[in-house]
Design a protein around this nucleic acid. Structure first.
Lengths: 198, 198, 198, 198
DNA sequence: GATGAATGAGTTTTCATTCAT
DNA sequence: AATGAATGAAAACTCATTCAT
C-alpha cells in the first residue's frame, strides 16, 4: 500500500525536518550528527525522521540535495539581478560572503559535505551535479571579458571563492569585509589577465 | 606507571604507527576510521595504539601534526631548490599536484582534517599553525613582483591552490596536468595584476 | 466505545483480512510478519487491522483459528465423500498432499503455528483443540481394520502424515506424487500390521 | 590483522556460549530470542556475543550447526552400540525419547529451527545436510529386513519419529513411555510390511 | 611493551500501538 | 469505519576503552 499522503503537506513537513537537520549538522558535523541530535533540533521523535526519510542516510542525502539546490538558486538570482559585468561580479561576491554567521554556517556544512562525498558515491553524485551547475554560472561570469579561455577562467574563479571560504573557516577573527575585498580583487585579477592574454 | 622508553626508538615507533594511521584515514575517513582499522593497517593490536598515544583522539591529533609538518617541509624545500621567481612558482605548483594517487590521497585527508578542525579546538590549533606557516611561504612568493599588497596576494595564491584541489577531488576523471596548468596560470594572473596595480 | 456492526458484514470483512494475513504469514513467517506486511497484502491500513482485531496478537490468533477450522472441514469432507475403507484412505492422503504450491504454503504456515504454539498458551489451546478434532477423524480411519489398538494406530497414522510433511518442506525438489505414495503405503503398513496383530 | 587466538580456548568459549544460547532459544523461541536473553543466560555482555560470532545471525547459525551435529553423533552412537536388529530399533527409539525434559527441550528447539529454516537459506542448508545424514542412518535400519524398498522405508521411519515428536509437544500431559511404545510399534509395523511385500 | 577478550555506552533501526482527522 | 503520521520502547550492532596475562 503506497503511502497515500497529501504531497504538499508532506513536502512541507520534510522541508522543515531537513532545515532542522541542517542546523544539527552545522553543530555536530556531518559525520558526528546523530538522529537524536536532529530529532531534538526538530522537536520530533527519532521514529518520525525514519518514517519520513527511510533512514539516517536518506535524511542526510535529502538535506544535502536541498542545500546545494538552495545555493544554486541564490547564486542564479544574484547574478540575474545585476546588470553590468562589474555589478554581476559584486553581486556574486556579496552572495558568497553574506553575513558572518550565515557564511560560517554555510561553509562549515559545505566542507563537511565535501569531505563526506569523497567516500559516499551517492553524495559524490550530488556534489558533481552541483559542480556542473555552478560551473555554468561561473562560465557566464568568465565570458564577460571575452570568449577565449572562458572555461579555464571559470574554474579559477570558483577556486578563488572556495579557497577563500576554506581559509575563512579557520580564521580566528574573520573580517567578512576583507574576505569580500580579497575575493573581488582576486576575481578581477583573474578576469583581466586573460582578457589581455586573449 | 610512567612510560620509560628510549626516546629515539619511541619516536620511530610512533612515526610508523602514524603513517599507518594516515593511510587508514585516507581509506575510511577521519570521522569513520576505527582503532581496529588503524591497528589492521599497522599490523599491531588496538592496545598498542592506545599504549603509545593514550587514546584514539591522541593518535589522530599526532597524525595531523605530522601531516601538516610534512607538507610544510616539502613546500619549503621545493621553493628553496628553485632560483628564479618563475621557477619558484613552477616548483610550488608541481609540489601541490605531484602524482595522481598522491594528490588524491593528500587532499582527501586534508579535507577531512579541515572539516574535523571546525569542531575540535585542538585540531583547530594545529590548522591555524599550519595556516600561519604556509602564509609565510606564500608571502615570499607574493613579494616577488613587489612589496605592495603582498599580504593580500599571498592569501589569494593560497585560495587558488586550495580551491582547485577541492575541485580536483570531485572530478570524475581528473587530468593532473590540466590542474597544474590552471593553477600556474591562475597564480600568474594574480601576481601580474597586482604588479601593474601596485 | 462499543463497536456497533452488522454481524454478517463484519464476519465477511474479518474473513477477508484473515485470508490476507494468512498469505502474509506464509511469506514473512509467523514471527517475522508485521502489521504493515499484512496491511499491504490486504490493501488496507494498519489502523483497520487493529480496529477489527484489537491488536496484532488478536489478528494472528484469529488467523490460526480459521486455519485449523479450514483444515478440519476439508479433512472431514474428504473422508465423507469416499465410501470403501481403501477409498477413504486414498481421499485422506490426497487431501493432505493437494497441489504443490498449496501443500508447501499449508505446511509452512502450520510449522510456524506449531513452533509459536509451544510458547503461547492461547495458541496452544487452539492447537490442542485441533489435535483432538483430527484425532477423532484419524480414529475413524484406524477403526476400519478392527477395534483393537485403534487409538494407538490413529496416533501413528497422524504421525506418518505430519512427519512426511515436515520432510517435504526441506526437500529441495519435492515430487508430490512420491509423497502421496510414501504416505499411502506407510498408512497401509501401519493398519495391516495391527490387523494381523489384533 | 587476523585474530590471533588460541584455537582450543576459543572453541571452548564458543561452545559454552552456544550452549547458553540453546537454552535461551528453548525458553524464548528461535525467532523471539534476543541477544539480551542469551547474554543473560550466558552471564556475559551482548558485546561478547557479537565479538565471538560476528552477529546474532552468526550465533544462531552456530547454535544450529552444533545442535544437529550433536543429534547425529548421539544417534550414530546409539545404533552402533546395539547388535541385533531388534536391539538397534530399540536403541534408536530410546535415543529419540530420552528423558521428559530433555525430549521437550530438544523438539521445541528443533521445531523452531525447522520453521526458521523455511525462510533462511543458510539454515535450510544446515537442515538439508542434517536430513541427508539422518537418512543414511535410517537407511541402515531400513535395510535390516531386506534390500527392496529400503529407501522408502527409511523415509517412513523418520516420518514416524518426527510426527510423534510434534504431537508430543502439544500433549498436555505427555507419557514418555507411551511415545516410546507408539514409536517402536510403528517402526516395527513399517519394517515388517515391506518385508512381506518385498 | 604488547595483546586481544570483554565491556557498556551510544547509535541506528524496527514496529505495534495510539490518536486526531 | 478507516486512515496514516507520530511515537517510544526495544532491538541489533559499533567501537573506544580497560585490563589480566
Amino acid at each position: 500500500m503506497a503511502r497515500k499522503v497529501n504531497p504538499i503537506q508532506d513536502r512541507q513537513r520534510r522541508a522543515g525536518l531537513e532545515q532542522a537537520a541542517y542546523l544539527a549538522i552545522f553543530e555536530q558535523g556531518y559525520a558526528g550528527v546523530t538522529l537524536s541530535d536532529i530529532a531534538r533540533q526538530a522537536g520530533v521523535s527519532k521514529g518520525t525522521l525514519v518514517y519520513h526519510f527511510g533512514s539516517k542516510e536518506g535524511l542526510l542525502a535529502a538535506v544535502m540535495r536541498r542545500f546545494v539546490r538552495t545555493i544554486a538558486v541564490a547564486t542564479r538570482r544574484a547574478l540575474r539581478q545585476a546588470v553590468t559585468p562589474q555589478a554581476k561580479l559584486e553581486a556574486y561576491v556579496e552572495n558568497q560572503f553574506y553575513g558572518l554567521a550565515n557564511t560560517r554556517r554555510f561553509y562549515t556544512v559545505y566542507l563537511d559535505f565535501l569531505a563526506a562525498s569523497t567516500r559516499d558515491p551517492a553524495l559524490m553524485q550530488v556534489q558533481r551535479a552541483f559542480v556542473d551547475e555552478t560551473h555554468r554560472l561561473d562560465l557566464a561570469l568568465a565570458r564577460l571579458p571575452g570568449e577565449a579561455g572562458a572555461d579555464d577562467r571559470a574554474w579559477q574563479l570558483r577556486a578563488m571563492v572556495d579557497g577563500l571560504s576554506v581559509r575563512f573557516l579557520s580564521d580566528p577573527d574573520p573580517d567578512l569585509e576583507r574576505y569580500r575585498r580579497l575575493c573581488l580583487h582576486g576575481l578581477t585579477a583573474l578576469l583581466q589577465l586573460d582578457e589581455r592574454a586573449g
